[in-house]
């Protein structure tokens, strides 16, 4: 059935691992936005959540790097990072192998995708789940778009993948939520960590809210790298949600730079209610 929830959020490891170093006036508002996102997700009645992440070499490496991958297991362990470093205890998140198989089969009608029966969640999925399903009581369908090791899939292919995910959600009887996670501009884990191009972020989120395909595809990796850092490559995850949401209009609930988290911390969602003709 049609998607019941579509949104995006940040996933930087500092959000949980370095929370004590942030200005609480800003970070508390961000955490409150995450709480609202959890509430919206619960209200949607979602029976499973697709999390489109930009995985960080926890499972996929340059010896065999898929552009797109979808998890197909009943459970996923995480986080792969040291729990003390990330601020998240070890967990076992539920999956749904049968649902994954059906979604993958539908996606494969238009987009070639790798599947993975083993997947260790890193911060890209663990941080959002920490806030959105803290009891790990909602099956997760992990999805990865390679945003780390070039050559990266072109943006229009990430868009096509998002459309395929939307069609796949339509084709199954379960109520599916979809959440993209990543940074906008950021230079994570580099000497420039903490630098944020907030103006660029706001412009990107404006395009995202308008769900303007042409404007969203009007980037290339060279100018993203120059203006938004290598972390900016993760816009693919946000754009895939735009495509999956099929023209829905979005709202930014929170978008503020928190340098110690290395990113403009963001929570946004699309209005999926039926539109009048």
């Amino acid at each position: 059935m049609p998607l019941v929830y579509a949104g995006v959020c940040s996933h930087a490891p500092g959000i949980t691992g370095r929370k004590h170093l942030a200005d609480p006036e800003v970070s508390d508002a961000f955490y409150a936005a995450f709480d609202d996102m959890r509430s919206d997700l619960e209200t949607s009645g979602a029976e499973a959540v697709i999390v489109i992440a930009a995985e960080h070499f926890a499972n996929f490496f340059m010896n065999n790097m898929p552009s797109f991958a979808i998890g197909m297991a009943d459970f996923y362990d995480g986080p792969i990072e040291d729990s003390g470093w990330l601020g998240i205890d070890k967990f076992k998140a539920p999956g749904n192998r049968d649902l994954s198989q059906r979604l993958i089969a539908e996606v494969m009608q238009t987009v070639d995708v790798a599947y993975a029966e083993e997947w260790l969640f890193d911060h890209g999925i663990a941080v959002p789940l920490h806030f959105l399903t803290p009891q790990f009581d909602l099956p997760v369908i992990p999805v990865n778009i390679n945003c780390q090791g070039p050559p990266l899939t072109p943006l229009h292919r990430a868009w096509a993948f998002g459309e395929a995910l939307g069609r796949a959600a339509d084709a199954v009887p379960e109520k599916i939520a979809i959440i993209g996670t990543g940074g906008i501009s950021h230079w994570p884990a580099t000497p420039d960590s903490g630098r944020i191009n907030y103006e660029w972020d706001l412009d990107f989120m404006d395009r995202w809210c308008r769900n303007d395909r042409d404007a969203l595809l009007d980037y290339d990796d060279l100018n993203v790298y120059a203006d938004a850092g290598q972390g900016g490559f993760e816009i693919r995850t946000f754009m895939a949600v735009s495509a999956a949401a099929g023209g829905a209009q979005g709202t930014v609930h929170f978008c503020e730079p928190i340098p110690i988290f290395a990113v403009s911390c963001t929570v946004a969602s699309y209005d999926l209610s039926p539109q009048e003709a």
Binding site: H56, D82, G149, A189, P191, S193
Partner: peptide, 30 residues
């Protein structure tokens, strides 16, 4: 290691393994 081309997403975990604090990790790359 950073200059030799190790991706920061891999390197930051190596730094954590060695109990290198975040700010020290960034400074060592600089």
């Amino acid at each position: 290691l950073y200059v030799l081309g190790v991706n920061g997403q891999i390197l930051m975990h190596f730094a954590a393994l060695h109990q290198i604090e975040w700010q020290d990790y960034l400074q060592q790359m600089r």
